[in-house]
């Protein structure tokens, strides 16, 4: 089996898994699920670290480090903001009004 076909096989199977695992999502969870999926693609961080670690000139290293920083924002921020959204579900009480800092309440 040629290598390109192997990659294509992984791609097609992962696509079916991605559709299948979320197909029964309840509509209240649409936004947290979107946010969680958003966090997952922050794993581009692994790619950014790889290219930064093999950079052989300063401009390329600088560009790669920007990618590392941006990907890290996506990854860490994504999971944290999803967790905060889900905390609201668990507590089952009205969303605090604007201007209220949730940290103060806890």
């Amino acid at each position: 089996m040629s290598e390109a076909i192997t990659w294509l096989t992984i791609f097609v199977l992962a696509a079916f898994v991605g559709i299948e695992v979320i197909s029964k999502v309840s509509s209240t969870l649409h936004t947290p699920l979107m946010s969680g999926a958003n966090a997952i693609h922050g794993i581009i961080l692994v790619g950014a670290i790889l290219v930064a670690g093999h950079a052989d000139s300063t401009p390329i290293l600088a560009l790669s480090l920007v990618a590392v920083g941006l990907a890290a924002i996506n990854l860490a921020g994504g999971f944290v903001v999803t967790d905060r959204m889900l905390q609201m579900f668990v507590r089952k009480r009205p969303v605090p009004g604007t201007g209220t800092r949730p940290e103060v309440e806890q």
């Binding site: 079916f16 991605g18 559709i19």
Partner: peptide, 9 residues
């Protein structure tokens, strides 16, 4: 895999 999961989902 991660990118495809997110793309499909």
């Amino acid at each position: 895999v991660a990118g495809t999961l997110v793309g499909a989902a």
